[in-house]
């Protein structure tokens, strides 16, 4: 399984390119991002929920919870930047063909016209899609948490 995965990632990367290191870096960045947003979401939810209840823990009549978009403010731009950074790895990969030799000459001579672009952009595109999916799943989880913890009477929307 691991070997198949490695073969697949290598086929989507310049020959000899440290794709595992690159993927590891993206995984660490994504994990840090998930952690930051999780902590941020929990903190903001706790802050906002506090205003809905009185000292006795009873729901204050007419109190309205901050909208979901406010609780998750900054979430989509942050993940957008990370996804774009992933796509920018394509530029790093293209410059790789100029390091240590001019292997770009060989890549540009290959009869398969897509080989150069598949190896340059393929894996960054896969990573970008995976990040976008992760962002969507996380946002979905936050939404469920929001719906579960906020009383229906205090819903903003």
């Amino acid at each position: 399984m691991k070997e198949r995965w490695s073969r697949w990632t290598q086929r989507l990367s310049p020959p000899g390119y440290p794709v595992e290191r690159e993927t590891g870096g993206v995984a660490v960045a994504a994990s840090v991002m998930v952690l930051i947003h999780l902590v941020q979401f929990l903190f903001r939810m706790q802050e906002e929920l506090r205003w809905l209840y009185d000292e006795m823990g009873r729901l204050i009549p007419g109190a309205v919870m901050a909208p979901f978009s406010q609780v998750t403010a900054g979430y989509i731009p942050a993940w957008g930047v990370l996804t774009l950074a992933c796509l920018a790895l394509g530029v790093v990969r293209y410059t790789y063909y100029y390091q240590g030799s001019r292997s770009i000459y060989l890549m540009r001579r290959l009869p398969d016209r897509w080989e150069l672009w598949r190896r340059t952009l393929g894996w960054p595109l896969v990573l970008a899609v995976l990040l976008a999916l992760l962002a969507a799943v996380l946002l979905g989880a936050f939404r469920l948490g929001y719906l579960w913890t906020v009383p229906a009477e205090a819903m903003a929307e």
Partner: peptide
């Protein structure tokens, strides 16, 4: 094509 700049993959 063989070039003095080399077109193989160094790694």
């Amino acid at each position: 094509f063989a070039t003095c700049e080399h077109s193989f993959f160094p790694h």
